[in-house]
Simulated assay, not measured.
Amino acid sequence: MPADKTLDQALAELAAVIGRLENAVDMRIEHQRQNSEIEGEVRRVHEDRARLAQELDQSQFRANRLEEVNREVSRRLVTAMETIRAVLDR
């Protein structure tokens, strides 16, 4: 009988170890899936950041161009006003 009990105990311990191993494997698979999802999200964030940086650069270029045009229009208005004053003063 002791041999049977020892065998039963060994089988029970083996079953418990196999159960823990299966749990560990399941946890590892879930961890890898979560890491994969996180890596995908990080990639999307980097892509968004690059796109936003490009849009910001384009907006800054347009703002600079508008500022240049604004200065030119202002200069032309001053010239036109001076010309009108000169004509009116005659």
Rank of each mutant, 00 (worst) to 15 (best):
H46N: 14
A15R: 14
V42N: 11
N23E: 12
L7Y: 03
L77D: 03
S59D: 04
A80N: 04
P2Q: 08
R44S: 13
S36G: 15
A10V: 01
F61G: 04
H31Y: 12
E68C: 02
E82L: 09
E55K: 14
D48A: 13
L21V: 02
E47Q: 14
L52F: 13
L66T: 01
I84Y: 07
E41V: 06
N35L: 15
N23I: 01
L11Q: 09
Q54M: 12
V73P: 00
R62F: 06
S36P: 00
V17H: 11
H31R: 15
D57Q: 13
V73N: 04
Q34F: 06
F61N: 09
A10G: 00
L52W: 08
R85I: 01
M27R: 14
E47Y: 06
L21T: 04
I84W: 04
R76Y: 02
E30H: 08
A50W: 04
E67Y: 06
T79W: 04
I18H: 11
R49K: 14
A24E: 09
R62K: 13
I29P: 00
R62T: 03
G19N: 11
R76M: 07
V69M: 12
E37W: 07
D48C: 10
Q58N: 14
R28C: 05
Q34V: 09
E39R: 15
A86I: 00
I84D: 05
V45G: 04
R62N: 08
Q58L: 15
A10Y: 01
E82C: 03
K5A: 03
